[in-house]
Amino acid sequence: MSRAVLSIGSNLGDRLGHLRSVVDGFGDRVRAVSAVYSTAPWGGVAQDDFLNAVVLVDDPAFGCADWLGRGRELERAAGRIRDVRWGARTLDVDVVWCAELCDGKPVACRSADPNLTLPHPRASSRAFVLVPWLDVAPDAVLEVDGTPHPVADLLERLDPAERAGVRRTEFALTGAAS
């Protein structure tokens, strides 16, 4: 069994619809969904703002690579084209953190595979990941350079402008449409 934290984002087309497609696409594997946030694009490519959220998932039959595989399927279904690094996209699904159960306890997975680096190498510096993650897991811990850190502490260390750029919206990914 594995559990994963998925960071999802969209800034092209029906942004909210694309995010909802992830919640629908993971179905009964979804354990929690954060609020939806509006954030400026990251990476220096001129484009529209993103809608971002975090989804917590688990499944006894999934391993860490399965989360990435399903995320990529959902990206393709949303018409994702990978032609500009950090460019505009209909849907982005990143596996930020993953754990597998060992003796009944979750043990964080590590991977240096270029297709799935775990934990996500830039998650600790991205408020658009950390803020919604704390919505669904206030006690979350992320390993950075081999050392575990509370996600709340990582967020606090970021530049105040970075944190302020993550603005909660009135949108919801579950329940009645907002």
Rank of each mutant, 00 (worst) to 15 (best):
D28Q: 11
G27L: 12
A40V: 15
C102H: 15
R163Q: 13
V55S: 02
R168W: 03
W67A: 00
E156Y: 07
N52S: 07
D145I: 02
L158G: 06
R157K: 14
G71Q: 01
G13F: 02
K105F: 14
D66Y: 08
V166I: 10
F50Q: 05
H18T: 11
V95Y: 07
I8M: 01
F26C: 04
F50I: 10
L118Y: 09
V144P: 02
V95E: 05
E162G: 00
A77I: 06
R3K: 14
L12G: 10
N115Q: 15
A4S: 12
L51Y: 10
V166S: 08
C102R: 15
L130M: 08
P119F: 13
T39C: 05
D24W: 14
G9E: 04
G9S: 10
L74A: 07
L154G: 02
G25L: 01
S125L: 13
A161T: 09
L155F: 02
V23Y: 00
T117Q: 15
F171C: 10
R70N: 07
A88V: 09
V55W: 04
G43H: 13
S125H: 12
V107E: 15
A176R: 15
L134Q: 03
R15S: 09
V141Y: 04
P160D: 14
G69N: 07
G165C: 03
A46H: 12
I81E: 01
G63H: 13
V151N: 00
S125P: 03
V129T: 06
D24Q: 15
L154N: 01
V22T: 03
P150C: 08
L173N: 01
A40F: 14
V57D: 01
G25A: 00
G146P: 03
L19K: 12
E75Y: 05
L155T: 03
L134C: 05
A88N: 05
